[in-house]
Amino acid sequence: MSSHEVTLFIDGKEIQANKDVTVLEAAEENGIYIPRLCWLKGLSPFGACRVCLVRANGRPQPACTQRVMDGMVVDNDTEELRGIRRNIIDMIFVEGNHFCMFCEKSGNCELQAMAYRHGITAPKYPFLFPQKAVDASHPDVLIDRNRCILCSRCVRASKEQDGKGVFGFTGRSIDKRLAVSSGEGLAGTTLDVDDEAVSACPVGCLMKKRVGYAIPVGERRYDQEPIGSDIESVAANKGGE
């Protein structure tokens, strides 16, 4: 073991990781999936959604921002944490207007997939049905804020990968909304349909126009296997080692 490596335990499994990575990254490299929505590979961690909440040495921490430490004991797949994650997903659903039955993102949506993975058949909280605006001004990209989960993946991707800063937020708490860098709406920005910011959206908030329902039901990303299965199957294949 080099001096750059640390040893930690996730749900009792001993793993080695580079000392500079986060708990989420260390887990993923070892075939352990920690559920997440606002984290996206290649973007700086944000810690917004809290779906990746784990107990690190007993303390609740988002796995996406928590660095690994030598000897750290991490709880991930426990009844308590699964319950917290279910509650967070429930809250995201009732705070927005998520009409899965006609959404173009359905079947490829990470929020929906997260609810499927956690066995949610109905949220436990009352629906709020908030008023949120649609911006269809851009010729190639649609913003439907009804579906926005405020993960900031588009905000970070536009800034860090596209070098543009097209997206940001206005308002606070329940009034927080996705905003764009022009008073003219999305059409007034420098956004291009091929920007990383567009494909970074985990839900159906930022959608490319004229490509909806391209994949038939049954063949979409999360139709057959739960989200995270790809990461876990790496572990299954390594099982003999």
């Binding site: 659903f93 207007n97 009409f99 899965c100 039955m101 006609f102 058949t121 109905a122 949220p123 629906f127 049905f129 908030p130 008023q131 949120k132």
Partner: peptide, 18 residues
């Protein structure tokens, strides 16, 4: 048993809720 999305979350008729 709530059968289907409308029973569970209002569904398409709930578009008027906004």
């Amino acid at each position: 048993i709530s059968l289907g999305d409308c029973a569970i979350n209002g569904g398409v008729p709930a578009l008027r809720n906004m």
